[in-house]
């Protein structure tokens, strides 16, 4: 079986035209308007970076014909914004609130999301306490999804704490089973921990084992009145979170398969600064967005 490959795009890439292209443009503008209205300043990092500044195995590698150095096409804008905050904008006044909207490229898609090019939208706050930054991030999310006419579930987790517990229980290998919620495959100590945490499915009951600051932060979030956001909690979640230190979240909508965004609290590696932010991938959402107004 052969076909004219000149007429066909590489796997995972597509042309966006007509109404869908308009919708993508309008939704992107609605996001940026909400973010800049909330005091986030737009940043536009480049498409290419040196390969050593990115450790993402899922990034496209290319060679720079100019310097002969290996380079990567960005697969995630968040590390670029973190680099900006630690370098060019190191001395800019804090809190530093940045937002971005740009395309990213992956070397491989997944079964659920075979697309390899995405429009990534996001915002980060550097140099503010988690108690202030996380509510600000969630407030912006609420404003964005309200403009898009899409109600979402924000599922809060605390992967940094959970990893600490696994380490304390000498059960770091349980992480894989925990990611699959394969409770039968957990060692006894982790099973006990899982049972203790399983009942806490929303912010009305916060596990007593958390430290005072975290409890206070979660109480603040519970009392935020954010239309369009439903908060749930899953204290056994850590899938995909690696560098985050504080509470994190994953965004879902029951009609859309797969997660639609994520974010959380972390400390920057370069200057140990408090930070919080989120990313949303717009393309899978487009068919579900209401008549979004910029």
């Amino acid at each position: 079986m052969s076909f004219n490959s000149d007429a066909v795009l590489p796997v995972g890439l597509q042309d966006v035209t007509g109404k869908l292209a308009e919708k993508r443009h309008t939704a992107r503008a609605a996001f940026l308007n909400a973010a800049t209205a909330a005091g986030f300043s737009l940043t536009i990092p480049p498409l290419l970076e040196f390969a050593d500044s990115s450790r993402d195995a899922n990034a496209f590698m290319v060679m720079d014909p100019h310097s002969r150095a290996p380079m990567v096409l960005r697969s995630d804008i968040t590390p670029q914004v973190m680099r900006l905050a630690a370098t060019l904008l190191r001395d800019a006044p804090r809190p530093l609130k940045l937002c971005y909207a740009g395309d990213v490229l992956r070397s491989a898609g997944t079964a659920l999301r075979p697309e390899r090019q995405f429009l990534q939208l996001g915002a980060e706050i550097f140099g503010d306490t988690p108690a202030k930054a996380l509510p600000a991030v969630l407030t912006l999310l609420s404003a964005v999804f309200a403009r898009w006419g899409l109600p979402v579930t924000v599922d809060i987790c605390f992967p940094g704490w959970l990893r600490g517990e696994l380490k304390r229980l000498d059960a770091e290998t349980a992480e894989a089973a925990l990611k699959r919620k394969d409770f039968s495959a957990l060692p006894a100590a982790v099973k006990t921990l899982a049972k203790q945490l399983a009942g806490h499915t929303d912010l009305s009951s916060i596990p007593s084992v958390f430290d005072t600051d975290t409890k206070a932060l979660l109480a603040v979030i519970k009392n935020l009145n954010l239309p369009g956001l439903t908060f749930t909690t899953d204290w056994l979640e850590l899938d995909g979170f690696s560098f985050q230190t504080g509470p994190c979240f994953t965004i879902f909508n029951p009609a859309i398969s797969g997660e639609i965004g994520r974010g959380g609290v972390y400390q920057t590696a370069t200057n140990n600064e408090h930070a919080a932010g989120f990313s949303v991938y717009l393309d899978p959402l487009l068919p579900y967005l209401g008549a979004s107004s910029a």
């Binding site: 919620k181 749930t232 994953t250 879902f252 029951p254 398969s257 797969g258 997660e259």
Partner: peptide, 18 residues
């Protein structure tokens, strides 16, 4: 054999599904 659950459903439809 295991009972398996879609991740999004697990997160967003706690009442009936859980």
């Amino acid at each position: 054999s295991k009972l398996i659950v879609n991740r999004t459903a697990y997160k967003t439809r706690r009442a009936g599904l859980h």
